[in-house]
Design a protein around this nucleic acid. Structure first.
Lengths: 257, 257
DNA sequence: CGATATTTTGACCCGGCTCAACCCAAGTGG
DNA sequence: CCACTTGGGTTGAGCCGGGTCAAAATATCG
């Protein structure tokens, strides 16, 4: 089953340097390089390379040795764990500027799969580890990113352990809504429309539900008027407050930051 | 309700330097200081201070500003999130050498509570942030620790999202069993006895269950012969493999490292 | 336009939650 | 010393949210 998926090497690789320079990178301001000086950036630039992946394509498999680590430049990547009997849980959803792979540990603890067309900015592990040691600004930024990731994982633990199916769906939608609102010029949080980057199956893996329950609860939120579906992949949120309410979050403080 | 708990300031504080020197610290080899040179250690030593907490005592509350961060030296600390309606999920269980508090972010995202008598090794946030910037070995180690924490959180996400009540209990027990075995001289993983540091209620918060289900599943594992209870807080594991099996983990690779 | 995913809907069932009682050990005070 | 309280733990009865199984309805794609 694992072999049916295209593997790492088949991503189309680009040679170093021929792609865009870091200075023009869309994630320049938020990724591990965001605190880097010009000199440091130049060094990163000279050893980085890009690789792209098609939707559904496996990037690394759990337990596998990986020689490269790096940042998501474009697209969405899922990280997930699978039990022997096939039960699967997504443990992270990585967006542009998020970092994939663990320094100082060559074996990947989970599967990474492209869920949309993906472009990664990669470094060989060895080179990256040297850069980490010699470039405090990169290490600092990586620490911040990792701490953010940890906070997100812990929020997700609350969702997985204690929220109802409907709250899970509403929380998931509210996160996507907020993310898409943040990327837009006018932060008109009302009447917001955005796209679901995941299939129902991937959503169920993320939320610890079954695909049927995901479908039913989306329908229920739609019938309750909390969301509108322009098609099965596009969602409109007429009133963000109502969505947050359905998500079981408190309306002002707490998880809104 | 929050005020009924004794607060941070009431932990008994010790003045700097009068306590044990870092060199004799029980977590010297695993905490943030484990890579520090003698000079660096001396610097840490001069600004650290200890504080102790009684079981059940709150260390920090979610949403609260904290001026200090540091490591667990002795005891067990729980980190948990609570929803408006009182549903609670533990998001971390911190043992000696684990690090509590987030640099560069003064507001705590979750409650931290001592579950046993606890001793923390603390630094003022400002001082610690300066040390971080100026002491790469500490920052490096903190990054490693945070990455470990992230991996643990993701393992927990699989448990919360996909495991049955019985598997959750068995997983929890196997983690405690392994931890206690690791601390012992002879790693005789069979016939191992260890103590539950948590009440049934705390266990249910950790596993995303109710206290009744925790009790029932412990009974079920006992009746199935997977574990023996010497009293309600002491567990004996006659065959570790059977426990792992009940936990739904694969018997050799995977989570055993 | 078939053919193969993906999504939705329906009927049924069961694991874990709820509510409630009970047990037991450790105080506490008269 | 005994009555009473208190906090943790166990056990039982019943219910319901979400899983399972099955099939229909809709995309998506050679």
């Amino acid at each position: 089953m694992r072999d049916s998926v295209k593997r790492l090497g088949s991503g189309s690789a680009a040679h170093q340097g021929t792609d865009d320079h870091c200075v023009d990178c869309p994630i320049r301001e938020r990724a591990i390089c965001s605190h880097a000086s010009d000199d440091e950036l130049e060094r990163l630039n000279s050893v980085k390379y890009y690789r792209t992946y098609a939707p559904g394509q496996e990037i690394v498999a759990a337990g596998e040795q990986t020689g490269a680590i790096g940042s998501v430049v474009e697209g969405v990547v899922s990280l997930s764990k699978t039990m022997m009997d096939g039960r699967r849980q997504m443990v992270g959803l990585m967006f542009p500027s998020d970092f994939i792979g663990r320094p100082n540990s060559p074996v990947a603890p989970y599967d990474a799969v492209a869920v949309t067309p993906v472009k990664l900015c990669l470094f060989s592990r060895q080179q990256f580890e040297r850069i980490l040691r010699e470039t405090p600004s990169v290490e600092q930024r990586l620490l911040e990113i990792t701490l953010d990731e940890l906070d997100a994982a812990r929020d997700w633990m609350l969702l997985l352990g204690r929220k109802t199916a409907r709250e899970k769906i509403a929380t998931f939608l509210s996160i996507l809504a907020r993310r898409s609102a943040a990327l837009m010029a006018a932060p008109s949080v009302d009447g917001l429309t955005f796209e679901l980057p995941l299939t129902r199956e991937a959503i169920s893996d993320y939320l610890g539900l079954t695909i049927e329950t995901v479908s039913r609860q989306i329908t229920a939120l739609r019938k309750a008027g909390v969301i509108e579906m322009v098609d099965s992949r596009r969602v409109r949120v007429p009133d963000f407050t109502r969505l947050l309410d359905a998500a079981g979050e408190d309306g002002d403080g707490g998880l809104i930051d």
